[in-house]
């Protein structure tokens, strides 16, 4: 962040001088502009291509989500608890990579991903975490057939909507930061997967989704602010390195194995990445 902040500071001094000039004209009251926020930026062929590529990525993830969730649902309906547990984090991952996009589809996100306390009524609680509780807490799939079928229907609906989603480069960039916000809020606290403790799988999926946005926009950022591009690349590497300490086999250690020192380190590495990444949207135009 350091370098990227020095430039605006110099700009502030200029602003102060100009403000003094304005004050000399007796015009200081007009310093506070009320221009409406404008978040659209002029599209270029490069930006259009990045958005198209990202839409393709989202669609691919949604396809994976349907396929994996179907496998997971089969295991649940076959009452194969061990297999269902094994597939839980794997099935969810493609949802976690595109969560901000999924969140824009009405109530699909809560239907697929709400936690027990998010649901208004117990009988309305559906989705991955409802089944997670059955598998890890109840040790039984009783009553889960219908929930599993509904989950498959819901991810299929997501798959359909993903094909036509409207996206702008600013949405993409904001989504990349939002995914890291998801990590800070839910995964690093162990709140997301409170029964299975597979939070680090979701952690990686969120970071993967964020990284994908960055990779697609990076050539544009390198033109406009190469220093910021380098900084973000370096911080992504650092996050993956920090996360790598907790890899076990194909997956990750249980969240319950993390100490306070572990979660602090992971959390601070996410903060170090998210801070420069939050400047991405404002640096997409030359």
């Amino acid at each position: 962040m350091i370098v990227t902040r020095l430039v605006p500071l110099a700009a502030t001094l200029t602003a102060l001088l100009l403000a003094l000039v304005a004050a000399g004209c007796g015009d200081e009251k007009s310093e506070t502009s009320s221009a409406p926020p404008v978040t659209n930026i002029a599209m270029t062929p490069e930006l259009t291509a990045a958005v198209d590529d990202y839409r393709e990525y989202v669609a691919d993830q949604a396809d994976d989500l349907v396929q994996r969730t179907t496998e997971f649902a089969e295991a649940v309906k076959n009452d194969d608890i061990d297999e269902a547990k094994r597939l839980f984090a794997y099935a969810r991952a493609p949802f976690e990579t595109i969560e901000p996009v999924a969140g824009s589809f009405g109530d699909l996100d809560p239907r697929i991903d709400s936690r027990e306390n998010d649901a208004v009524e117990e009988q309305d609680w559906t989705g991955f975490h409802r089944i997670e509780k059955a598998l890890w807490v109840d040790g039984s799939t009783d009553g889960m057939d219908e929930v599993a079928d509904t989950l498959v229907d819901d991810v299929k609906e997501l798959q359909t909507q993903a094909k036509t989603v409207e996206l702008t480069p600013v949405d993409m960039a904001a989504g990349a930061t939002d995914l890291l916000g998801e990590v800070s809020k839910g995964k690093i606290t162990g709140e997301e997967d409170r029964y299975s403790h597979t939070d680090l799988y979701d952690f990686q999926a969120n970071v993967d989704g964020s990284k994908q946005v960055f990779v697609l926009l990076k050539p544009i950022l390198e033109q406009n602010n190469p220093q910021l591009a380098d900084e973000i690349s370096q911080e992504f590497d650092d996050v993956y390195a920090a996360l790598g300490d907790y890899k076990r086999g194909d997956g990750y250690v249980s969240y319950t194995e993390l100490t306070d020192a572990d979660t602090k380190k992971l959390s601070q590495s996410i903060d170090a990445l998210a801070e420069p990444l939050s400047q991405l949207a404002a640096n997409l135009q030359s």
Partner: peptide, 18 residues
């Protein structure tokens, strides 16, 4: 002029800076 941004910026600090 300085940054070439196309889009709405909101100046908040002028009076206070003065």
């Amino acid at each position: 002029v300085g940054a070439g941004l196309v889009g709405g910026g909101i100046a908040v600090g002028g009076v206070r800076g003065l």
